[in-house]
Design a protein around this nucleic acid. Structure first.
Lengths: 241, 241
DNA sequence: TAGTGGTCTAGACCACTAT
DNA sequence: TAGTGGTCTAGACCACTAG
């Protein structure tokens, strides 16, 4: 099964341009717009790779809008496009709102995909999936309960490797940063269990968001989240064409 | 002035990757999705350039969504993009769901913009706006109450000209088809009046959608809609960058 | 087995910016 | 003048697809 071999290889020694890309992404993630990124030749030295490899890494970050190249001057942190409707992790969403995000794992284990999850993840029923359920907090208060299923084949050793704080960051390290997602959104009332976790009264309206996240044309995550409507408003942008 | 020299140079002998790119774009522009594009090595032969140069050209076309690469097989004309997350009118939304849309005007009059509406429409308080409130039905049953404010300056004679069925169609007739919108979405319970219009019980969760719709860089519509959550799920697509 | 795209190397010259 | 990004070369090996 080549997929397994390949996944292991990726886990052990990621593609060089991915290594460089994620290294720079980390460096840059907390930086102010306008901060210079390492120059391409500097990264060539640090990683001992060819310049074209560095450029491949930087090309991606530039395409993402994270960096901006100015010929003759260098590469700099771009000012974030204030695009609502961008695909962000929970942590990213909360940061955009100026809130501190925390998570508390309720459940994390390997399971066999049921029919619904298998279809959503484009797997076969009974295939291994990772079931990860978390209570998400913002500034210390309950915000959301997220119930996620991940394609286990794409994330070997995920449960053993120590659970990361940010799922999207963990995916990015494996070259599986979600590039787009489909959400379906509805209003509902919480179950008794959800109401208890979210510390709200039964009958309080909540926002349910079902997500399919895709990276590299593969469905990596499907999740159902339930948000406290008194603390959370969802912002989306609709394009034309 | 280098710019002129450079432009002339470009006019005479464009950058190689641009030559290749435009050559392929022409080849492909009228082709059916799935049609194979020339292979990279083939283009290397034809243009007498290095493969990295060809890849630079193809990278652009792939990023544009014009081409699709399939490892081991080749490069092909991509099928045009998705539908979800597109900006649609209420009528369009319902059509996509296979439902018949109807509207019933509750209120339609000229008003002076209050502070909130003025800010949202990028007007000055007291400017003339059109206030249009409608009950929206789908297959005969209440679906949504929409409360919209329109910039009156952009729609002269709108109220006198006989109310159209589709707002977006009316806007399109004036060259103001919304190309872009920002929605904020939350869960709530209906007011007594909303519950009566929607024919639902008090306390039933509803989806509230606030929209700012932009056409030609001008805000043409701001609205608040309240949807029956038992009949309506909102679908959105989130892109990356 | 021949062909494809994916990755990578170790250089090179250019036009530009900043000092 | 030193440094940067933009472009380009002429190869290479890999994993995969298809006949």
């Amino acid at each position: 099964m080549w997929l397994v071999e390949n996944a292991v290889a990726i886990a052990r020694e990621p593609l060089k341009h991915v290594q460089v890309r994620e290294y720079v992404r980390d460096l840059v993630s907390d930086a102010e717009p306008g901060t210079p990124a390492p120059s391409e030749r500097e990264l060539v030295q640090v990683f001992g790779v060819a310049r074209m490899t560095v450029r491949q890494a930087m090309d991606t970050l530039v395409a993402e809008g994270l960096l901006e190249r100015i010929p003759g001057r260098g590469t700099f942190v771009a000012k974030p496009r204030n695009e609502v409707g961008r695909l962000l992790s929970y942590t990213g969403e909360m940061q955009r709102r100026g809130l501190h995000a925390e998570s508390q794992t309720i459940l994390a284990r390997r399971e066999q995909a049921g029919p619904g999850v298998a279809r959503a993840l484009e797997l076969t029923e009974g295939d291994a999936v990772i079931h990860w359920k978390r209570l998400r907090r913002a500034d210390g208060q309950p915000m959301c309960v997220e119930d996620a299923y991940l394609n286990e084949v794409l994330l070997p050793g995920f449960l053993q490797s120590g659970m990361p704080t940010s799922l999207y960051q963990a995916l990015a390290m494996r070259g599986l940063r979600p590039t787009w997602a489909e959400d379906s959104i509805t209003a509902d009332v919480p179950t008794a269990e959800e109401a208890q976790s979210l510390e709200i009264a039964l009958g309080t309206p909540v926002l349910r968001v079902a997500r399919r996240a895709v990276a590299d044309d593969r469905v990596v995550e499907v999740s159902r989240s339930v948000y406290r409507s008194d603390r959370f408003t969802l912002y989306v942008q609709l394009g034309d064409s």
